[in-house]
Computed example of a mutant assay.
Amino acid sequence: MKTWSREEPRPDGPGNRRPGQLQDRMHFAKHLLIFSMIVVCASAAHFLEQEWNLWKSNYEKTYATKEDEMFRRKAWEANWNKVQTHNQLAAQGLKSYTLEMNRFADMTSEERNSHNCLSTKGKIPPADAPQVRYGKPTNIPAEVDWRKSKCVTPVKDQGSYCGSCWAFATVGVIETHYCLEKGEQAILSEQQLVDCDSNNDGCCGGLPIMALAYLSQHGIMRNKDYEYSQKKFECLYENDNAIQMNVTKYYILPGEYNIASSVAYNGPVTVGIGVVDEFMLYKGGVYDGDCAPEANHAVIVVGYGNEPSEDEDEEDMDYWIIKNSWGAQWGDKGYAKIRRNVNKCNIGDMVATMDFTFA
């Protein structure tokens, strides 16, 4: 066995390292770790900066001051983290829908939760608006999608500054029924309702059932003659330019089974839903997330269907197809699927439509 003299260098084994060498190695490892963390953070910050600038460009976002942009950037980053986390769960099959960084992504949760355009305060549905009950549907189609009729008009955008969803939901239903009867699409005026329907509150909210009552008496102008402006102005309704309707009745539909029967037999209907901030970031899939305690937004049910489960131990998921008024860049080209037969977001509590023909 070889022995080592004091003059000969010893191997650099764990027990033979000099204190200075070991300390140098520890310092090097520490600095390497810190450097790696700096590189990772810088890379992440650079990536977010690119994403932020791309998002601003895509949605044509500009801000009045540097402070305002910094505030919006902070809200945007919080939403970015939320969307990434949620979509990772969706990729694992733990969520039935996905989210995206859409035009609402620079708003805070509080701002999105205050986005209310369905107002019931001080409003009583017309006395001659009865409830219609079809009974439990037993022989309606398994799925319905009125978009296939080519009579659902293009998705519109109510804008960020006018709570007029009630007008868009009402007009969208009228447009489809007009096309089904006349064989051609007509783009009709939401602005007429915003300006002229005194029973509703213009950009501060309203109820579709009240709007239907107004239209049954006055008819509706075309959008080209009365364009939407995202603000309430003086009423410019012209009877001579209005499409008149012969209304048999307008009515409320209580419960989801009544919605399904009416949609299957008659066409799209207006519904109220209770949305929260997460729904405003919806991208696709069947929404089964959180909801507001009561309806605060009006949309149109244009159909329904069923999403087969990938897991044999889980039930299939029924859904509604809704047409929204947040533009075609929101959701699935302006549409969404919401879970059906569980009264998700109180969708069965505030439903309205009417039976009518056009003069």
Score class of each variant (00 low, 15 high):
residue 163 G to I: 03
residue 157 D to I: 05
residue 189 S to T: 12
residue 131 Q to W: 13
residue 152 V to F: 07
residue 183 G to D: 11
residue 28 F to D: 14
residue 338 I to F: 06
residue 208 P to R: 08
residue 276 V to L: 08
residue 164 S to E: 05
residue 94 L to G: 06
residue 174 I to E: 00
residue 220 I to P: 10
residue 136 K to W: 13
residue 50 Q to M: 12
residue 159 G to R: 15
residue 181 E to K: 11
residue 14 P to S: 12
residue 205 G to R: 13
residue 139 N to D: 12
residue 120 T to I: 05
residue 5 S to R: 15
residue 149 S to Y: 06
residue 189 S to C: 15
residue 175 E to R: 14
residue 268 P to E: 04
residue 114 S to E: 07
residue 13 G to M: 07
residue 261 S to L: 01
residue 238 E to A: 14
residue 130 P to W: 11
residue 179 C to M: 13
residue 343 N to W: 09
residue 254 P to Q: 00
residue 325 S to K: 03
residue 20 G to K: 10
residue 134 Y to V: 15
residue 219 G to D: 02
residue 328 A to E: 07
residue 216 S to P: 08
residue 268 P to T: 01
residue 270 T to V: 11
residue 73 R to C: 05
residue 90 A to D: 00
residue 326 W to K: 04
residue 256 E to G: 03
residue 294 E to R: 13
residue 26 M to T: 11
residue 44 A to L: 12
residue 85 T to C: 01
residue 336 A to V: 01
residue 292 A to S: 04
residue 207 L to D: 07
residue 92 Q to A: 08
residue 333 K to T: 07
residue 190 E to F: 04
residue 197 D to Y: 03
residue 342 V to Y: 10
residue 268 P to H: 08
residue 9 P to K: 10
residue 328 A to I: 03
residue 21 Q to P: 03
residue 287 Y to A: 00
residue 175 E to K: 08
residue 233 F to G: 13
residue 70 M to I: 10
residue 201 D to F: 02
residue 40 V to N: 11
residue 4 W to L: 09
residue 9 P to W: 09
residue 130 P to V: 04
residue 315 E to H: 09
residue 191 Q to P: 13
residue 149 S to A: 03
residue 346 N to M: 11
residue 129 A to E: 07
residue 246 N to C: 02
residue 114 S to M: 10
residue 56 K to V: 00
residue 344 K to P: 05
residue 240 D to Q: 15
residue 157 D to N: 10
residue 355 D to E: 12
residue 204 C to A: 12
residue 153 T to L: 14
residue 140 I to T: 11
residue 110 E to W: 13
residue 21 Q to V: 06
residue 157 D to E: 06
residue 15 G to A: 00
residue 130 P to I: 10
residue 262 S to R: 13
residue 73 R to Y: 06
residue 337 K to D: 00
residue 185 Q to E: 13
residue 223 N to L: 07
residue 184 E to F: 07
residue 224 K to C: 05
residue 293 P to I: 00
residue 326 W to N: 03
residue 197 D to V: 01
residue 61 K to G: 03
residue 295 A to L: 00
residue 61 K to C: 01
residue 284 G to W: 04
